[in-house]
Design a protein around this nucleic acid. Structure first.
Length: 430
RNA sequence: UCCGGAGUAGCUCAAUGGUAGAGCGGGUGGCUGUUAACCACUAGGCUGGGGGUUCGAGUCCCUCCUCCGGAGCCA
């Protein structure tokens, strides 16, 4: 089968071409009808004129339904009346299948209905644009790490231990014992960093949190770099470089998609390096200045993050957190043992936390006592503690939430549209 | 788990306690430049389930279910 794509339509001006696709919509007007053809790479209008095609081709119109699969042959012509500037004067149409009545009409639908039809909703313009941007964000991450000497290390999905407590874990039967679905590749990433220096992992992670908000999924993807001989400040540099790289890539390569989504690009273009860095204490001050009665020592809520992010045009990094608010494996600040060397990056415009990370505790005895304090089973962290026995070094890393990053760049309010098939508290299908 | 909101035609929504309606989508017909086309006609309903109040319930009360938004937790 010959393959030509609508995305390349300009190359075919004046020539005959066949596009294989689906009927997005059609309009009929007696002696002429129009077919909007979608082929996955783009859309173009096909014009069928009664006087210019065989009778049987013209007569196809009433039999076609939305999303019927067709191959359309015709001559590509420049025409300002057509969306995209080009259109196809039809010579022949081959119908592969006449679609049954398509549930998604061009008019409005509720999200619940659309999510029930997610397998079809993917064909819609906006969803197509969002997932196209997701693809570019992933590619940007891989390119960034590749260009900077990082090695991709795949970490396991089945794990025996929890890195941040067991309450949020999905457990699965694993022969005669229980395994958990990973909630982070970090601990394995630390092991790999000691082997390769700079690594990253990229994969799905699972959290059994009963969260019902626009920022949560039970299955989401994380990009987690881990660097040996790296302190908190360098860690923050890597984080801002990565996010800046991703953003610029999207601004360069996803103009069409951002336009389809009506994204206000000026807000994205306003982002500049270096990103602001504030301590946890400074963030609390911002909240208090804005009249929030904040409970010192706790993590920020969604509304708090929005207020903090509104103070800046670029993503803001909050570092040096009260130790109670952060995980056991974070190193403490040498100047204040009550502070953990963690960092969160908050996206602008209220999109919330997109990065969490920090410098890891590299001392064996301190780490052992932390595991004890947190009442975690030391036996399961035996291999992790080995990393502090055999050539321990200062090291840091972070996790970038892919879906939240895509939500911010696309300007989509709900994270569930940034992944092809979202898994939430109430949704396991389709 | 808690707090709010919503379940009516395929979809999005109307309907003082008094005959269940519109737009879109579907069907039929018309139209040679339409862009969510337009015009005419047409089919389509166990008002989420169960119980109650009432002469009479989509509407009021109780209960269950489902979904949406938020909180907590987090990326």
């Amino acid at each position: 089968m010959e393959h030509n794509y609508i995305a390349d339509i300009a190359e075919f001006e004046g020539k005959d071409v066949t596009f294989h696709g689906w009927v997005y919509s059609k309009r009929s007007s007696g002696k002429i009808w129009f077919l909007m053809l979608r082929d996955g790479t783009g859309m173009t209008q096909c014009v069928v004129v009664k006087a210019e095609v065989p009778e049987d081709v013209f007569e196809i119109e009433p039999t076609l339904t939305q999303e019927s699969s067709v191959s359309v042959t015709g001559t590509v012509r420049k025409d300002d009346r057509s969306v995209g500037g080009y259109e196809l004067t039809v010579k022949d149409i081959i119908v592969h299948q006449v679609a049954e009545e398509y549930p998604i009409s061009p008019k409005e639908h509720g999200t619940s209905f659309l999510m029930d039809h997610r397998h079809l909703w993917l064909r819609s313009k906006k969803q197509h644009a969002i997932l196209g941007i997701r693809n570019q964000v992933i590619k940007a991450c891989r390119d960034f790490f590749e260009e900077n000497g990082f090695t991709l290390i795949d970490t396991p999905i089945f794990t025996a231990n929890a890195c941040e407590g067991t309450s949020n874990l999905f457990n699965v039967e694993y022969f005669d014992r229980t395994a958990y679905l990973t909630q982070s590749g970090q601990l394995y990433g630390e092991a790999a960093a000691m082997a390769f220096g700079k690594i990253y992992c990229f994969g799905p992670t699972f959290r059994a949190e009963k969260s019902k908000t626009r920022r949560h999924l039970t299955e989401f993807w994380m990009i987690e770099p881990e660097m040996a001989y790296c302190d908190l400040d360098e860690n923050m540099e890597w984080a801002e470089q990565l996010v800046s790289f991703i953003l610029n890539r999207c601004l360069e390569r996803c103009k069409d998609q951002l336009e389809t989504l009506d994204r206000d690009i000026s807000k994205l273009e306003a982002v500049s390096l270096p990103f602001p860095r504030i301590t946890y204490d400074e963030a609390v001050n911002i909240l208090e200045k804005n009249g929030i009665d904040f409970d010192y020592g706790t993590d920020f809520g969604g509304a708090d993050e929005t207020i903090i992010s509104e103070q800046f045009e670029s993503p803001v990094m909050i570092h040096r957190w009260p130790k109670e608010a952060k995980a056991f494996y974070l190193k403490r600040d040498a100047d204040n043992d009550d502070l953990a060397l963690g960092v969160d990056m908050i996206a602008p415009e209220g999109y919330g936390e997109i990065i969490g990370g920090g410098q890891r505790e590299d001392d064996l005895e301190i780490l052992k006592s932390r595991i004890k304090e947190h009442e975690l089973p030391e036996e399961e962290f035996k291999w992790y503690l080995d990393l502090r026995r055999y050539g321990s070094v200062p090291h840091s890393g972070f996790g970038l939430g892919l879906e939240r990053t895509v939500a911010w760049i696309t300007g989509i309010p709900h994270i569930r549209e940034t992944i092809p098939f979202p898994r939430t508290l109430a949704r396991l299908e389709p």
